[in-house]
């Protein structure tokens, strides 16, 4: 445990990831839910692992790469400020339907889809 209490850290990570460009929501994901349990509550979408802090997000714009980079950078900043040396893992759990449709439309118009 570093300087910050785990609940405080998880809330800070969730706030940073949620505020990043292109993030629609933080979700627990399929499988074993990614949550951080705190007294009387659970912070959804943030899992504080032993070697990595993973953030599970739903994204509302394509392409994914700049969004994921932004989330990773935002979370890394929080961890660095807290003196935490764990890696950051970003898991894209879903992409909002409209984002996929508009990307496909752009593709049909001859635009670039990545």
């Amino acid at each position: 445990m570093t300087v910050l209490d785990r609940g405080v850290l998880a809330r800070a990570v969730a706030a940073a990831a949620g505020a990043a460009q292109g993030v629609a929501a933080l979700v627990p994901g399929g499988g074993v839910p990614a949550v951080t349990q705190v007294p009387g509550d659970a912070i959804v979408g943030v899992a504080l692992g032993g070697s990595a802090v993973s953030v599970h997000v739903v994204i509302d714009r394509l392409p994914l790469e700049p969004v994921v980079t932004g989330v990773a950078a935002a979370v890394a900043t929080v961890l660095a400020d807290a003196g935490d040396e764990r890696r950051v893992e970003v898991v894209v759990e879903d992409v909002v339907d409209e984002a996929v449709e508009s990307a496909l439309r752009r593709g049909a118009d001859g635009g670039e889809v990545r």
Partner: peptide, 18 residues
């Protein structure tokens, strides 16, 4: 059932200590 035991035990340990 269905949740990470490691996560629960970490949370319990931290809260009990605090």
């Amino acid at each position: 059932y269905g949740q990470s035991i490691v996560e629960v035990s970490d949370a319990v340990r931290a809260n009990v200590i605090q």
